[in-house]
């Protein structure tokens, strides 16, 4: 446990040693604000909730999270520091989890910095803060799932740009499988259980449930399982490819 903490702390400090962290946070907050107020019509709706805000999270994550995750392992492999890390008395699992937790904490910080919008909506009206809290939890879990996918892809590629693009594609598939137009495409001919199965694999389905304020254990478990599965794949890929 201690080792995981040390690895995560080192990694997290590494983000803030380069402009990457600041660029990411500024971009994230700026885009979030723009999308919520302009495209989401936050004021025009005249409702005291954050539905337009959270509605954009999956799509913003789709672009921004791979930008964080792409360097996780690709950079270690490129610079050769992976050889150092893997020859320290550290297990593969500790290294994978440590680096993932660092990236996840970082996105948590970025997400937490959106707090002014929560204050704004409370100032303007009387929103259901329970719903907003649940949506934040859902958003964080979804970010974790995106990151776990990205970490795994990053371990498989030495090239960060390639890792970035492949991660976007895979995350896009995970998102789209719950997107209504896609489900409509299947609903014409596929049996209902199959449509349900496709939809249930989607981040959108589970995130939408959480962002409506329903902290259903199944949705939480879903995201944790996705994270676990991709991190497990991450350790296997790393074990195979670390020395290539």
């Amino acid at each position: 446990m201690n080792t995981i903490k040390i690895i995560a702390a080192r990694e997290l400090r590494g983000y803030f040693a380069t402009p990457l962290a600041y660029v990411f946070i500024v971009l994230f907050l700026a885009l979030m604000g723009f999308l919520t107020f302009s495209l989401g019509g936050f004021y025009d709706r005249g409702q005291a909730d954050l539905i337009p805000f959270f509605g954009f999270h999956p799509w913003l994550y789709l672009i921004l999270i791979p930008a964080i995750s792409m360097r996780l392992w690709a950079e270690e492999r490129k610079s050769g520091s992976i050889e150092l890390l893997m020859t320290l008395p550290v297990t593969m699992f500790e290294a994978v989890l440590g680096k993932f937790l660092a990236a996840w904490s970082f996105t948590a910080v970025a997400l937490a910095l959106t707090f002014p919008i929560w204050i704004t909506v409370n100032y303007l009206g009387e929103p259901d803060n329970g719903v907003i809290f649940a949506a934040y939890i859902g958003s964080l879990l979804m970010a974790g799932a995106f990151l776990a996918i990205g970490a795994c892809i990053s371990a498989a590629n030495r090239n960060q740009v390639v890792a970035f693009i492949i991660t976007i594609v895979i995350c896009f598939i995970f998102l789209l499988s719950g997107f209504q137009p896609v489900l409509d495409f299947f609903s014409g001919w596929a049996p209902q259980p199959m449509i349900d199965a496709i939809a249930s694999l989607s981040f959108l389905t589970h995130f939408n449930a959480l962002s409506k304020g329903v902290l259903d254990l199944r949705d939480i478990v879903y995201f944790l399982l996705v994270i676990g599965a991709w991190l497990y794949a991450n350790t296997i890929i790393l074990d195979m490819k670390k020395a290539d």
Partner: peptide
């Protein structure tokens, strides 16, 4: 027993890689 063995070893990899931003 990789972890036990690694504890006893000091290792300098080829090219002396480290974390550049540190």
């Amino acid at each position: 027993q990789p972890t036990e063995a690694k504890r006893l070893i000091g290792y300098l990899p080829e090219g002396a890689p480290s974390y550049g931003e540190m």
